[in-house]
Amino acid sequence: MSPEKLVRMANQIATFFASQPGTDQAERVAAHLKDFWGPEMRSELKSYVAAGHGGDVDELVVRALPLI
């Protein structure tokens, strides 16, 4: 799947949870990705970030990825 699209979708999710109160935003992003994304989509995003393409990825997503 196109990594740009995955990044855009993940960033959209992060934008929502960043606006939510509390200190568990990264956990909530991780939970959302686990609940609604198939495992292949998650691992593609992980590999993309792991390969050093993290520049355009929201910081909250980066923090969430190790939790999934």
Binding site: M1, D35, F36, G38
Partner: peptide
């Protein structure tokens, strides 16, 4: 136990 693909994801995965 894992969620599957949604319609847009199916189409993206098909193109891939």
């Amino acid at each position: 136990p894992e969620p599957g693909l949604r319609i847009p994801n199916m189409l993206d995965a098909a193109v891939a």
